[in-house]
């Protein structure tokens, strides 16, 4: 809001007038063309409203970092005849920020440098159902609901329960079975061998490369 207000105040004097049409070439060599909604000179961030590629009535909003754009051109200058920007629901923005941070923190909790990427993906599949607060790493073991433990190599046979709740055990076994049945994997024998050897030799870059990205929304 402050940035938008500042841009509105300096609309005429700034590098990019609100309402102008600008085309940018990003560092991925993609061209983005849209109408300027806001610009912040200090951070060199430009907000563009572009026609949506999927739905005609909607617009995509792009936040461009001009420091990383190779080419920026003003196609059409605007003389100040533009609609007032939409009012922002700041409470919702705060809530979205908090939730996004929480999801990133949850993703970090699923990381474990001592186990295979596959085991970490299984952790995330289980945490997605039970909630990240109910699943944790205990060394190499996955702990669920404080009553079920999965030990390496994280197969159906490796599930044990510390309570009388066999139903919980059985359900988690079904999750594990479905997890391995629905993923492209080599033959079970070499798969087991791979997971056995990877705890000691798995490089950090490999782990990072294979981790699935968290949606940023």
């Amino acid at each position: 809001m402050a940035a938008a207000a500042a841009s509105a105040v300096n609309a005429v004097n700034d590098c990019f007038s609100i309402g102008s049409t600008v085309v940018c070439t990003t560092c991925f060599n993609e061209e983005v063309e849209g109408e300027v909604l806001a610009f912040d000179h200090n951070t060199k961030m430009l907000i563009l409203k572009c026609r949506s590629k999927s739905t005609e009535e909607l617009s995509d909003i792009y936040a461009m970092n001009l420091s990383l754009c190779s080419n920026v051109q003003v196609i059409k200058e605007c003389n100040g005849n533009f609609d007032d920007p939409q009012k922002l629901n700041l409470e919702q923005v705060k809530m979205r920020l908090r939730k996004t941070v929480e999801r990133r923190q949850d993703y970090l909790k699923s990381k474990n440098a001592d186990v295979s990427p596959e085991a970490q993906e299984l952790y995330r599949a289980i945490a997605k159902q039970y909630g990240y607060n109910e699943v944790s790493w205990q060394g190499l073991n996955i702990q669920i609901l404080n009553e079920v433990t999965i030990s390496p190599p994280y197969r159906v046979d490796n599930v044990v329960s510390s309570s009388n709740n066999e139903t919980s055990c059985n359900y988690i076994k079904r999750i594990i079975k479905q997890f391995f049945n629905t993923r492209p994997s080599p033959v079970p024998e070499s798969g087991a061998a791979a997971s056995t050897s990877s705890p000691s030799v798995s490089p950090t870059s490999s782990s990072l490369a294979s981790g699935s990205p968290v949606p940023a929304n």
Binding site: Y130, E166, Y171
Partner: peptide, 8 residues
Amino acid sequence: IPIALSGK
């Protein structure tokens, strides 16, 4: 659903 299917 997952919690109920776990018998809790």
